[in-house]
Each structure stands twice: as structure tokens, then as C-alpha cells.
Amino acid sequence: MRRALRAVVLGGALHFKQESRNPFFLWIVICTPLVYATMAYFLFRGGQDDATLVTASLGSALMGIWSLTTTAAASTLGRQRRVGILELLVAAPTPFWLTIVPITLALAALGVYSLATGLIYVTVLFGVPVTIANPFAFCVSVLPMILSMGMLGFLFCAAFVRFRSSWMVGNLFEFPVWTLSGMLIPIAVLPVWVEPISWFVAPTWGMSALREAALGNASPWDDIGMCIALSVVYAAAGGALLRVFLRSALRRGTLALS
């Protein structure tokens, strides 16, 4: 248990270092919120109130995180393979899922840049200082939000590992998750039958927790609980899929090849 924790924390920290030195990744997490917050600002010009703007800034920040997670986390194995490290990771005596989870978590954690950019930018652009109603709950909410993104990324990484262009398959889910999780579009606007689907998307709860903590309308703690519970489910499912994949890759000899 302590070993697993060490592997996640230390592995996560090192991968955070490695990935945050990738200009393209940084660019995604920083630029996406800018673009979508701006777009929301123009589009909302009709009737804007502070709550809408705060939600838009948080939402566009989370969009940035999800964008990176779909493009990068879903193709984690492919990227490790391209640089010739995948085999070394498999050959190490640490369980494979424990090696991969820190990578997708680190990518989601890069989202703190998104969050910071989104909040600062909105303050500057909208001229509305963003006030956080419940700072403690807000800070606490960030962790399960990142966890949920990282674990969804991990699930995708495991589920799409057999696709040669897993990053493209990952991209498939960029807009759907944006749409479903209430990041920029309130779920109430969507067709009624969509709402139950959004309950199974962990970032929905992460977004909701952050929004409640920021606006102070409702308690964020239920959302946080749901967020963590779903993340655990994702992790378990991803771990199981990865196990199946690994066995078949060793059997088929496809680990090093595409």
C-alpha cells in the first residue's frame, strides 16, 4: 500500500515534470480556457450576471483539462511506445496499472494551469473579480476533479489501447464530455434523456462541486463524493481492461510495434 502510494506520488510528480515541459500540452491547457471563455463572453453578451461568468470561467478551465486528457492521456501507451519506454515500463516489476495511473493523473494535474488561467483571464476580461464563496471547499474540490479527469483518461487509455490512432479515438470524446458535463452549457438546456447519461460522467460532478463551492448556493460535498466514487469505478474498469490488453500484447508480440 505504501509502495503503491509512493509510486503514484513520485511517478506522478516526475511525469508532471516531463509533460509540463511539452509546449504543446501546456499550450492546450492554457489556451483552451482563453478561447472558450472569450467565446462565451461574446455569446453571453445579452444578459450576463456574475454567476454565469464565474461558471463560464470554471467551465472553460475544465474544458482545457479535458482537452488535454483526451488528446494526451488516452494515447499514453502510444506515446510511451513511440519513445521506446513502454517495454521498459512493462518489464519493471511494478504492476502495470500502477505505472500508468500516475501518468494520466499527471496530465490531468496539468489542469491547474487551466484553472489559474481561466480564473485570472476572466477577471481581466470581464472585469469581474471572481469571488469564491467557500474557498476551503473550492480547494478541496480541485483534487477530486483532477482525479476524475485522470481516471477517465486512464479508462480511455486502457479501452482504446488497441486502436492504432488512439489519440484520434480520444478526440472523439472531447466535445461529448464538454457537452455532457455541464462545463459551459447548463445540463438543463440539453434534452431530458441526456441528463441521466451525464450522471455517469465523473467530471460532471467535479464541475458541479467547483461551481457550488465558488457560488456558495449549495453544498459541494455530495458532488465530491460522487466524483470520487465514479473515479474509483473508472480506475477498476481501466485496470481490468489494461490487464487483458497486456496479456494479449505479450502473446501477440504487439508491444513494441504499432
Partner: peptide, 17 residues
Amino acid sequence: LYERLSAWDNLRYFAEL
């Protein structure tokens, strides 16, 4: 090798693994 990490970090990571 992880290109964007130092030799030290590369080794530390695998020491962990």
C-alpha cells in the same frame, strides 16, 4: 529515455518502479 527529464529523474523513476 524521458527526454525532458534529467538523468537523475530518469533513474529515480525507474528506481521507484
